[in-house]
Design a protein around this nucleic acid. Structure first.
Lengths: 203, 203
DNA sequence: GCATAATTAGAAACACGTTCCAGTTTTGTT
DNA sequence: AACAAAACTGGAACGTGTTTCTAATTATGC
């Protein structure tokens, strides 16, 4: 009876591991969505993902790694979803604002989740550099894509475009933190982003 | 002999409390400077400030409040020191870069301290809004002052100036976090700030 | 100068991130 | 199939932020 589920040997172990990893990230996501940063407790994640605490730590060396990985997964999904669409708007500013507001709306619809992921991002140190890099690249990609209106012209993205995208990403992050921590409202956040975009993208 | 140090009665109790508060903030500062965020342990602060743990929590309801208060004190000092000087530079961009680089240099000279205070700032929630506001105002004040070259013309500061200052403050904060968490070097941070300032202040 | 209230000290206890360990199960090799 | 290595489990244990409790101390009102 043990033979049944083994057709190719070299993928089975990895498949089980991918499965565990997915269960863990799903549990993280669910707990974060329901209760925010504090609700993502390592014991709870382990229990909900049906793995032992030690196993959880084998897959993710800290709570921060865990949450930033979850953020990265979500950002990559958002990024690839947005990047295969045309972005409406007549100029760079409008298009960038369109995607930023869209993302902001999405995040504000899940405030607890956003709080958890943003907190983790802000608290990450250099040991999380890889996971952070994923998030940063997605963000830059989203903004540069919006600047060019959805046409994937590779040569068209200049160094200045990337610089602009990074600055906007910074402002966006700060605004997000201010919103997450209850220091500014959603409307203020949107207005601030609009100001920043118009200051930086005057075409 | 007990009469000596009591001239006006209604200040004595407060004086003792001011003293404790100052001792606590000093201890926080020293521990943060020596060992960063993790070294600021509530038991250590209490011991070094010569107060009981319960007393520490009576003065500052959490480690975050404590650290952000320390950050606020430092920012206010920096702000008032900078605001009474003339800022060198021929245009807004140069002057703003001057003060930002100056601040960055100061903070990079005390990396542990900067790490502790920045982490706390990023982790603060709305219950720390008051302390945060102090920091935000100091930052805005520093930048707007630099934009105007050190001449304290009150009417000269427009809404747009404030908006620009806030955007620059956001970028500065993000860059600081990236540096503090070891995700970018001091040189990269400086270059990034320079890019942002030139993007936003083209005069 | 004394009674009462507020404050502080001191220490124990709790919560959660993290580490560690002994035993078991799974995986990979021969 | 037998063995070795790696991964997993379950749970105890540790460190540090936070809370709580009681006795001692200090300030305040009459």
């Amino acid at each position: 009876m043990t033979i049944a589920n083994s057709t190719s040997t070299d993928d089975l172990g990895s498949a089980a591991q991918r499965d565990r990893r997915k269960r863990i990230l799903d549990a993280t996501y669910d707990l974060a969505k329901a209760g925010g940063f504090d609700a993502v407790q390592m014991r709870s994640v382990a229990e909900q993902a049906d793995v032992a605490l030690g196993t959880l730590y084998r897959y993710f060396p800290s709570k921060i790694h865990l949450l930033v990985s979850a953020l990265g997964r979500q950002f990559e999904e958002t990024s690839s979803r947005l990047n295969e669409r045309e972005i409406p708007g007549d100029n760079k500013a409008d298009r960038v604002l369109y995607v930023l507001k869209r993302m902001a709306r999405g995040m504000q619809g899940d405030p607890k989740l956003t709080e958890a992921l943003t907190r983790a991002f802000m608290f990450a140190d250099s040991s999380v550099a890889n996971e952070i890099h994923v998030v940063g690249m997605s963000m830059t990609s989203i903004v540069t894509h919006a600047m060019h209106g959805g046409v994937p012209l590779e040569g068209a993205i200049t160094d200045e475009d990337v610089a602009v995208a990074r600055v906007l990403g910074d402002v966006w992050l700060s605004a997000l933190v201010a919103w997450v921590t209850g220091r500014s409202t959603a409307a203020e956040t949107a207005a601030h982003m609009e100001t920043a975009v118009h200051l930086i993208l005057r075409d």
